[in-house]
Structures are given as structure tokens and as C-alpha cells.
Amino acid sequence: MSKLELTHQLQATVDALSEPSSMKGLCHKHRDGNPLPSSKALEAIIDLSRSILLPGYFGNSQVFFSTIKYHIGVRLEKLHALLSEQILAGLCFADEKESESTQQLNRRRAKAGIMAAKAIMRFPEIRSQLATDVEAAYKGDPAAISQGEVISCYPVIKALINYRVAHVLHQLKVPLIPRMMTELAHSETGIDIHPGARIGNYFTIDHGTGVVIGATCIIGNHVKLYQGVTLGAKSFPLDKDGNPIKGVARHPIIKDNVVIYANATILGRITIGEGCIVGANTWITKDMKPKTKKYRKEKIDNLEIEFNNGTGI
């Protein structure tokens, strides 16, 4: 192929890739002056959030009680600025109008700053919840030497920090940004928690890899999952045009003091009653009454199974 022919072929490729019909639903039209959602900025927001919520374990700096207010204050100020900008980016991203006045953008920027402040004001509550999660992980794993080891090493803590901050933003109806934050944790830890899920206190996931928790899940207190657990949906209803109907509660409700062992799959808007134990590799699509047990029977009919409240079999 000659140089001229190559040039023509590349130009034809540019023309094909620039054809509007080929980009339907695949190209975001960005307005000049509006910020774009940024994974790098959200990573910085997560790092700051972790260093504020669990100081001394995250943030790459020593923390002394004599200077703790300075440590947190400086980070909070930076966090508010970064979070405000990313919330603004989410608000702009969700609005697909082709033009916007400077006045409209300024109003949206002020709204983003207020939403960021409201989210940060929930941090004392988030820290209290995380304290219960750390305790649950420590008490639920005989291999854990200390709570410090749990915070430093266990992927569930990182995933839960992302989730609990993202859940607050989700409650504030921030578009896109909460989902991006939990997907960062998904990439980092292998734990996929939708920010819309509602998770109580003293929650833990042993090992964690491959866990999926859907958007409309409701999880009570003192719940423990093992790796590979899916709290998902069955088939979803469609509208007259064959499109999924959004906003339908379609994921499980898990009551207090439930243990779900590795690779169990629980699907649909069903209720797993208080104190239930779900064995490994089971498939659950119907309600379980409180304090009942279910495990896979194939090939183990003659094997006596004992569950010890989440500490093992």
C-alpha cells in the first residue's frame, strides 16, 4: 500500500468514526466550562476520606493527638473542594442540554458545594459505622491479630469506606459519582457493592473476592458474608417497548445475624430471616424463615453438617 493509499484509508476511518449514527449513546456531549467526572480526582477523594475516617492507617503521614484537629481540618478543606468539583461534574454530566448560561452553572456549583458539605457532615456517623465493621471483621476471624491488622490488610474495610461514603452521596441524589466510587473499590478489592444498597452495622465479608451486592439490597446488623456471595436479582420486568423498568426493588432483604457462606447465590426480592445460615454453593430464590439453615445436599447426604455462627463449619 502506497503512502497516498494509506492516507486515504486513514481518512476513511476518521470519517467512519465521526459518523453521528455510529456514536448514538456512546458519545457524551461535553459543554465548554463544565468539569468532567474524573477517576483520578475520585481516587484522591477516597484517599482523603480514608485518612480522615481512619487517621494514621491511611494518608501516608504520621498522626499525633496534639495535632489531630490540624490534620483533619486541612484534609477536610481539601476534600470539600475536590468533592464539590466532582459533584458538580456529576450534576453537569446528568444534564444533557447542549447549552447552559454562566448563571445556571454558578447556581449548580453552589448546589454542589452544599451537597459536598452535607456529605462531609455525615463523616462522624460513617466513622461510627466503620468502627462496628472493623469489630465484626476482627471478632469474626481467628486469624486476625488486632483491629489495626484488619484496617490495614482486610479488603472489606476499604470497600466499606468507599461504599459508606458513596451511599451518603447516593442519598443526596448525586448522579454518577457514587457509582464511580464503589466501582473504584470493586477494581481494588474485588467486592462489588452498589451505593444504593442499605447495609447495617457490624457488617463484614471474609476474604471478599467476588462478592456482589445489588442496588436494592437491604442488609441488617451483624451480617457476615464469605467470598463469592451474590445478592442479586432474578429476571426484571419490561415496559411495553421491551426496556427494563427502573426503580423496582429486586434484590434480597437480609435480616440481622445472618451468615452466608462462600459462593452462595441469593436472588430476587426475598427475605432471609433473622439468624439464618446459608451454606456454601447454595441457590436461594425463596424466603427463609428465621433461624433456619440451608446447604447443598448433593453428594453430602451422609455427612453431618454443623454451622458455628459464622466461625466455620
Score class of each variant (00 low, 15 high):
residue 191 I to V: 12
residue 142 P to F: 00
residue 12 A to D: 12
residue 4 L to P: 00
residue 185 A to P: 14
residue 187 S to Y: 11
residue 160 L to D: 02
residue 308 N to R: 14
residue 194 H to T: 04
residue 309 N to G: 01
residue 216 T to I: 07
residue 117 A to T: 13
residue 295 Y to Q: 07
residue 263 N to Q: 05
residue 304 E to F: 04
residue 126 I to D: 00
residue 51 S to P: 02
residue 87 I to C: 03
residue 273 G to P: 01
residue 211 V to I: 11
residue 252 P to T: 05
residue 95 D to P: 05
residue 56 G to R: 07
residue 275 G to R: 03
residue 81 A to F: 08
residue 89 A to P: 06
residue 118 K to V: 06
residue 269 R to K: 12
residue 93 F to V: 04
residue 219 I to H: 06
residue 232 G to I: 07
residue 113 G to E: 10
residue 117 A to L: 15
residue 123 F to L: 05
residue 151 I to M: 02
residue 98 E to S: 13
residue 127 R to V: 08
residue 128 S to T: 08
residue 11 Q to I: 07
residue 212 V to M: 04
residue 144 A to M: 04
residue 253 I to P: 00
residue 238 L to K: 15
residue 152 S to F: 09
residue 80 H to K: 15
residue 295 Y to A: 09
residue 174 V to M: 04
residue 46 I to S: 10
residue 46 I to M: 10
residue 271 T to R: 08
residue 19 E to Q: 11
residue 233 A to I: 06
residue 92 C to H: 07
residue 14 V to Y: 09
residue 1 M to V: 14
residue 62 Q to G: 02
residue 259 V to H: 05
residue 281 N to V: 00
residue 225 L to Q: 05
residue 273 G to D: 06
residue 277 I to C: 08
residue 296 R to T: 01
residue 154 Y to I: 07
residue 141 D to I: 06
residue 283 W to T: 04
residue 105 L to P: 03
residue 132 T to Q: 05
residue 129 Q to L: 13
residue 11 Q to G: 00
residue 79 L to A: 01
residue 301 D to I: 10
residue 273 G to K: 06
residue 246 K to F: 01
residue 236 F to R: 12
residue 282 T to I: 01
residue 37 P to Y: 00
residue 307 F to H: 05
residue 182 T to D: 03
residue 313 I to P: 04
residue 250 R to E: 06
residue 157 I to G: 04
residue 210 G to D: 01
residue 143 A to Q: 06
